[in-house]
């Protein structure tokens, strides 16, 4: 498998919720229409967000899933404030992002020549995020096996933190990628997963939004704008609604 290849999603769906009605079998039954259990339309029909369903890995290999899990549970550790980044779905988020248009940089200018520039000239690496993860994770694994004779995921938490700090500061070099840039990418994507709308696979049950007091995808604060310096405690709302909205699964 080439480093940039991606498993084809076996099904694409807008949301994993079973509450979404598919308009199957609704034709040829005369003018009457029975609506039961869910509304007779598909959300985002005209302009859908690109999301992939749960239950399968689209890009990451089992070994990579384990490594990214071991990273994201240290970047965002479980503590009194929240569950870990791993438990919040950051690995699923990263996997689906890499499988989509973000992973292949298909929207970005990727023409050469690639040459290093000044710090002000920004990212000039020729690799797309899929390649950066594949090579970066393999290089990290090689580093850990060489230095500790263990896989990264098998290191105790303190030692993982130490390795991550070394990547962050460039204290260690990786074989195929720039260590600092690789760390920055994984950190960025982990935070995206933790704080993005749950429809993308992370931020499980809006855990980060509840933690911060961010009400999410609400669209009207006209009743609240004049309530100065008051804690509002508004329960957050995802693009997909709230789990309480579902009477049964």
């Amino acid at each position: 498998m080439r480093s940039s290849e991606v498993a084809q999603p076996n099904r694409r769906q807008f949301l994993s919720s079973t509450a979404i009605a598919l308009l199957l079998g609704s034709t040829g039954r005369g003018l009457g229409e029975t609506i039961a259990g869910s509304p007779p339309w598909k959300p985002f029909d005209a302009s859908p967000p690109q999301t992939l369903g749960s239950g399968t890995w689209y890009f990451l290999t089992p070994d990579e899933v384990r490594t990214v899990g071991a990273i994201t549970e240290r970047l965002i550790p479980a503590d009194e404030l929240s569950i870990s980044g791993k438990d919040a779905g950051c690995v699923e988020f990263i996997d689906r992002q890499l499988a989509g248009s973000y992973g292949s940089s298909e929207r970005l200018y990727m023409k050469g020549p690639f040459q290093p520039g000044t710090p002000e000239q920004g990212d000039q690496f020729p690799l797309d995020p899929r390649q950066r993860y594949r090579l970066g994770l393999a290089s990290l694994q090689a580093h850990c096996r060489e230095t500790y004779q263990k896989a990264f995921a098998d290191l105790p938490p303190e030692q993982r933190d130490q390795v991550l700090t070394q990547l962050q500061t460039g204290a260690i070099t990786l074989k195929d990628v720039d260590a600092k840039a690789f760390f920055a990418l994984v950190l960025q994507n982990t935070m995206e997963g933790f704080f993005a709308d749950p429809i993308y696979g992370g931020n499980k049950e809006m855990v980060s939004w509840r933690m911060l007091g961010f009400p999410g995808a609400r669209y009207d604060y006209r009743d609240y704008i004049d309530k100065h310096n008051q804690k509002l405690d508004l329960p957050p709302l995802s693009i997909a609604g709230r789990s309480e909205w579902r009477v049964k699964d």
Partner: peptide, 14 residues
């Protein structure tokens, strides 16, 4: 109405 639908517009990642 189509591209900035209220249901899908508040999407920071996208």
């Amino acid at each position: 109405a189509r591209d900035f639908n209220i249901a899908s517009a508040p999407d920071e990642l996208r």
